[in-house]
Every structure is written in structure tokens, then in C-alpha cells.
């Protein structure tokens, strides 16, 4: 079951770097992160990698494996051929810090730009009443582990540094949708989504949804419905008002 696997890992920092070749032991049931850890323990003690839970729950270990954005801790070695050379590189959309670690502060900046939950003034803590069916929509988006793989993948910013200013990215457009669909949120977020967070840049290619390790239907359930609300608002404000009132009742 044990074999010697061939790996190419990107090493370097903001000044530049290159792929480095390694041959390393691989055992049954292992994931790519196990191999990176073995490299640290045996061949490259200062190889930088971000991780935390090793269970797909914290979203720290995002990287690109053979060019595909993935979580290192949830990518099993068994999906590769033993003869295959596996290439591990850092996420491309964010600036490099060192080796596999990137500077993801873009995402924290965007998070801060989304106005927070606006609670109803007339309800005290403990008085909130919501039906399961009504919270499920936002709950799906709250499964997000903030791995930022969708942010890394979306072509609007992937090779377009210049769009970063105006575009919140799928993760944070989804956050706007989550609040918009929250049964008790009192803010109006439709215009904001379009005007402040760059919803218009999204042309629903669904690449973000494809890489989401939580299998959240970002495009279908968050982005498209938000776009519909923007469109409804443009053509028919009464429809929008109706939706909003219906939602609160």
C-alpha cells in the first residue's frame, strides 16, 4: 500500500520562487496535507503551509493541486495514480507570503464592507420566531468555511487585479444574499449588492460553485436570486415591496 510518490511543490516568497521536486512516502488513506506534513518532518522543515483542523472544517488549507483549487486536508491521495506527479501551488489570486501561504487579507477587507445583520428593534432576545423552511436558505450559505477557494477561482478577480476594488467576490456577494434572505433582517440590501459590491460583474459562470468544498450552490441559490431581485427592483418596485413584506410576516 505504501509507495514513493512524486511531488512538485512551489517554494518561494513575494520576490519569486519555483517548483521543487520531492520524492516522499505515501500510505494508505492519506490526504495531500499528510504528505506536506511528512515533507516538513523529513525533508523541508521550514516548508510553509496553513492548516488547522485537518478535517475540512476551518478552511485554512486552501491551495491548488494540479491546478485545481482544493483543500489540502480533504484531497485524498487515492484519487491520483501512483505514477502521477502531483503539483501543489499556492492560491493564485492572492499575494504570496511564503511557499503555500498567501495573503488573504482581501477577503477580510471585503467582509468588513458588507453591512452587518440589522436586528428587528421590536424583538427582545429570546423572542425571535422563525420557521425552519425560512431559515434554510440562509443556513445553506452559513455553511461557508471561508476557505476563499471561490474567491480564488472567480475569473472576475483571478487574473484581474484591477477588479478587486469594486468586486466583493462570490463569498461576500453570498453573504449579502444570506442577510437579504434572513427572515428577520431589516436592512434593504438589493441596491447595495449591485452598486457597492459589484454583483453586476458576475456573469454566472458557476466556477465558484464548482470548487466550493461545502458544495454550496453559490451561483444558483445566492447570486442568481440576487440578480433577479435587482432586476425586479429595476422594473417593478411593487413586486419587491411585496416580497419584502411577505418575508417579514
Amino acid at each position: 500500500m505504501t509507495y514513493q510518490g512524486r511531488f512538485r511543490v512551489w517554494r518561494g516568497d513575494d520576490a519569486g520562487g519555483a517548483l521543487e521536486d520531492f520524492t516522499v512516502e505515501v500510505n494508505e488513506g492519506e490526504v495531500v496535507l499528510d504528505i506536506i506534513h511528512r515533507l516538513q518532518a523529513t525533508q523541508a522543515p521550514d516548508l510553509a503551509v496553513r492548516w488547522n483542523c485537518k478535517a475540512g472544517k476551518c478552511g485554512s488549507c486552501s491551495a491548488e493541486i494540479n491546478g485545481r483549487p482544493r483543500l489540502l486536508c480533504m484531497t485524498r491521495m487515492s484519487i491520483f495514480e501512483e505514477s502521477e506527479t502531483i503539483t501543489v501551488t499556492p492560491m493564485r489570486t492572492f499575494p504570496i507570503i511564503r511557499d503555500l501561504v498567501t495573503d488573504v487579507s482581501f477577503n477580510y477587507t471585503k467582509a468588513r464592507e458588507v453591512p452587518s445583520f440589522a436586528p428587528p428593534a421590536d424583538l427582545a432576545p429570546g423572542e425571535y420566531r422563525m420557521q425552519q423552511v425560512d431559515v434554510e436558505r440562509s443556513q445553506e450559505f452559513r455553511k461557508c468555511i471561508e476557505c476563499f477557494l471561490c474567491q480564488n477561482t472567480c475569473h472576475v478577480v483571478r487574473d484581474h487585479e484591477e477588479n478587486k476594488e469594486a468586486f466583493a467576490g462570490p463569498r461576500f456577494l453570498m453573504r449579502v444574499a444570506e442577510l437579504e434572505m434572513h427572515p428577520l433582517d431589516t436592512a434593504d440590501r438589493v441596491d447595495q449588492a449591485q452598486d457597492e459590491h459589484g454583483l453586476g460583474y458576475c456573469n454566472i459562470t458557476k466556477c465558484c460553485s464548482e470548487v466550493c468544498p461545502e458544495h454550496i450552490h453559490i451561483t444558483d441559490n445566492a447570486l442568481i436570486p440576487m440578480k433577479e431581485r435587482v432586476a425586479d427592483r429595476k422594473y417593478d418596485p411593487i413586486v419587491w415591496l411585496g416580497n419584502k413584506l411577505f418575508k417579514r410576516s
Binding site: Y128, M130, Q139, H182, D185
Partner: peptide, 24 residues
């Protein structure tokens, strides 16, 4: 503990619900 959990709802938490709309 109950107050601390209810307070989370005012911060935006969405817990699973009972049939009558309270926290399950």
C-alpha cells in the same frame, strides 16, 4: 446559558428551529 444563546440570535445566528419557530 439561555441568555447567551438568545443573544447570538440578535447577532445574526440561525439555529435550527422547532415547529413553533423557536430554537430546536
Amino acid at each position: 446559558a439561555p441568555q447567551r444563546v438568545w443573544e447570538l440570535e440578535t447577532y445574526g445566528a440561525l439555529f435550527d428551529r422547532t415547529k413553533d419557530g423557536r430554537i430546536s
